[in-house]
């Protein structure tokens, strides 16, 4: 564990070093700002109320998309696990959602919905296949291992769902939730950039790009990366707290 932490810190230091070396090679603040300039820009941003408002709304959009995708995936994966017909019906739908270009969906959604809603829907559509696949695989695993026993003892559907399927499928889903949630943040911000959403990190990025304010653009990117890390860490802690029977 301690060794892994040391390697993770070394990886962050290596990335920082690449940035510093690249800065001294490029030597052009309009192409690649220095680490310190970016750090100062981040300090400025963190002091602005508009940043926190944008941060809050982006966060809300990400969570709205994630939990909507989670609920949809939970219901549909449960139905797919129970009924082969539902599984077969959803297979091409999920494949299509997985392969459809995100940018194209955002552009279409911008015609149909508002600038604030389009990033949420596109994030939902990207996250759903990942969550659905993770949940279905977990539920299939539980059924394979314990389904025969539950059927043999004629355990009711409610008791099976509550005591067997949900708790036993949860660890695998929670284990992937962090990376899926952080992917959701990335997609939401991309959607916001393209939709030029008002009060959003993506919108602020777009604004910084138009003003050629590269330090702010990089600072916002670093914020998104750090929040992604924090979300992954929080999900890991949640998994440990919830799934105590495994430790």
């Amino acid at each position: 564990m301690k060794k892994n932490l040391i390697f993770s810190i070394l990886a962050v230091l290596a990335l920082w070093l690449v940035w510093v070396v690249a800065y001294f090679i490029v030597r052009n603040d309009y192409i690649l700002p220095s680490f310190w300039e970016t750090f100062r820009a981040m300090g400025r941003l963190l002091g602005e109320p508009s940043f926190w408002s944008a941060f809050g709304f982006t966060f809300l959009r990400t969570f709205a998309a994630f939990f909507a995708a989670l609920a949809l995936a939970a219901v549909l994966s449960a139905l797919a696990c129970l009924f082969g017909g539902v599984r077969a019906f959803l297979a091409p739908v999920v494949s299509t959602l997985r392969t459809v270009p995100t940018m194209a969906v955002i552009l279409i959604l911008l015609l149909w919905t508002s600038h604030g809603v389009a990033p949420v829907i596109v994030s939902l559509l990207v996250l759903f296949p990942a969550l659905y696949a993770a949940m279905l695989a977990s539920l299939d695993g539980v059924r394979e291992e314990y389904g025969g026993m539950a059927r043999a003892f004629k355990v009711g559907a409610g008791r099976r769902a509550l005591w067997m399927y949900f708790p036993l499928a949860a660890p695998a889903v929670l284990g992937q939730a962090g990376s899926i949630l952080s992917m959701g943040l990335k997609i939401t911000v991309s959607g916001e950039v393209l939709a030029q959403t008002y009060r959003s990190l993506g919108g602020m990025m777009q604004d910084a790009q138009i003003r050629l304010d590269l330090p702010s653009l990089l600072a916002l990117t670093v914020v998104v990366v750090l929040v992604g890390f924090l979300l992954e860490g929080a999900c890991l802690l949640a998994e440990r707290a919830i799934v105590r029977w495994r430790t």
């Binding site: 025969g148 026993m149 003892f153 067997m164 036993l168 029977w245 495994r246």
Partner: peptide, 12 residues
């Protein structure tokens, strides 16, 4: 009623 080769106890 059943007794399986593997006890099939729910780990949670």
């Amino acid at each position: 009623s059943y007794l399986f080769q593997d006890p099939k106890l729910l780990p949670n």
